[in-house]
Design a protein around this nucleic acid. Structure first.
Lengths: 219, 219
DNA sequence: ATATTTCTTGAGCGATCGCTCAAAAATAAG
DNA sequence: CTTATTTTTGAGCGATCGCTCAAGAAATAT
């Protein structure tokens, strides 16, 4: 270590895009795994929702004390924001986007979305339903922003549905008289209803039947 | 007032089933209208949900002090129970049962249910969506009973749907291969999704299109 | 008038909420 | 070693939670 102590150089890894090497940090090392803690927080928020999950609940589940939580994540709301992003990039939270990206026909995409929702929402390996749909339904006015955040995300997903269906009509997959906006709203309605049904105890078999019935509406 | 002071006789109205006469009560009369207060509480719980509505919110909206609320309704949970009953016997809360009772065919009943839900859920004269569906989604473990109460009511409604559809199959309105349980779950899913969509800003026209698409699944 | 009954009022209880912070602990750097 | 840096810890802050209760107010009964 006789080189100039240039901080930028010291921080740069040998290869520009190599995974960050475990270069030793200066102070006391963290006593918990950030990803594991984030997963624990996700499960709690997913199960109970934003306001019904207390910071005490979170610190207990994450195995840390309040100071560590606030140092690592900011505050409760910032933690929830990160949880939503974490959920949205997980397999469970991204199945719809993946189906839309991977299936060539719109019908195949929406059929896959409904069938995967039927399998995923009641999966006992995680809380039932969709976090984006159910985690901020009941909030006090002081947390209206959290509620609006998820509402906007839901409505953005409906718009993505509509865009895909409009493209399908232009491609001739759907007849000219098909209504992309109406179909998008319908499929969003079914998906959100399936999330609620899963939380009410509906099984994967129940929801699979619902998905097949819902697909009968396809033009 | 020279008759025997028989309490039973004194309490009995002249006609056995006449509306209770406004016989003067003993002490200080109530300073608020109980029905109006219950309606105010219903609107608050409907909009925000059970836990997100505080007793302070309630007393402010009802125009009373905590002591009056607890004397008149018991506690917050008992008030909510009464709100749920009040809601369930209101036109907005009872439209499904009314359609099932009044329509002769199952198809007419479910078509009417979906179309009325599309008109009622986004009606701006009251909070969007259905109170039973959305008022106890996010609760702490200490209020799990409230959540279970509404979940049971929702699942009871699905069972009523199934019973009606099974009768329709036995009557020949539905083909023998129709699945009453699957259809009941499907319609419940659509209705619960429509409630969520209404709370997310969907208009009556949006939901009407959703209802028509949903009815395409009818066997 | 006096007594009795019923309801309202406003202060405030113990518990929990989200959150903060000084002190201690654990590491690397000099 | 000492110093610097980062994280953990545990006590506890002010605010709000659901709820209670003694005192006062307003009616009827005697």
């Amino acid at each position: 270590m006789t080189e100039t102590p240039d901080p930028a150089q010291a921080a740069a890894p040998a290869s520009p895009h190599a995974p960050a090497p475990p270069r030793p940090r200066r102070g006391r090392p963290p006593g918990f795994d950030r990803d594991e803690a984030l997963t624990a927080a996700t499960l709690l928020f997913w199960e109970r929702g934003y306001e019904a999950t207390s910071v005490t609940d979170l610190t207990t589940a994450m195995g840390i004390r309040p100071g560590s939580l606030y140092a690592a994540f900011g505050d409760k709301r910032a933690l929830f924001e990160e949880v939503v992003r974490h959920y949205g990039s997980s397999p469970v939270g991204a199945f719809a986007g993946r189906a839309l990206a991977e299936e060539t026909s719109a019908h195949a995409a929406f059929a896959r979305i409904l069938r995967e929702a039927a399998a995923i929402y009641p999966d006992p390996s995680h809380p039932a339903g969709c976090l984006v749909i159910s985690a901020a339904t009941n909030v006090t006015p002081q947390d209206a922003e959290v509620q609006a955040r998820l509402r906007d995300e839901r409505n953005r997903n409906v718009q993505v549905f509509e865009d895909r269906l409009r493209a399908a009509r232009e491609d001739g997959e759907l007849p000219p008289e098909a209504d992309p906006k109406a179909l998008a709203g319908y499929f969003a309605t079914v998906i959100q209803g399936m999330s609620q049904q899963a939380r009410d105890g509906a099984t994967a078999a129940d929801l699979a039947r619902t998905a097949e019935l819902a697909l009968r509406a396809w033009p």
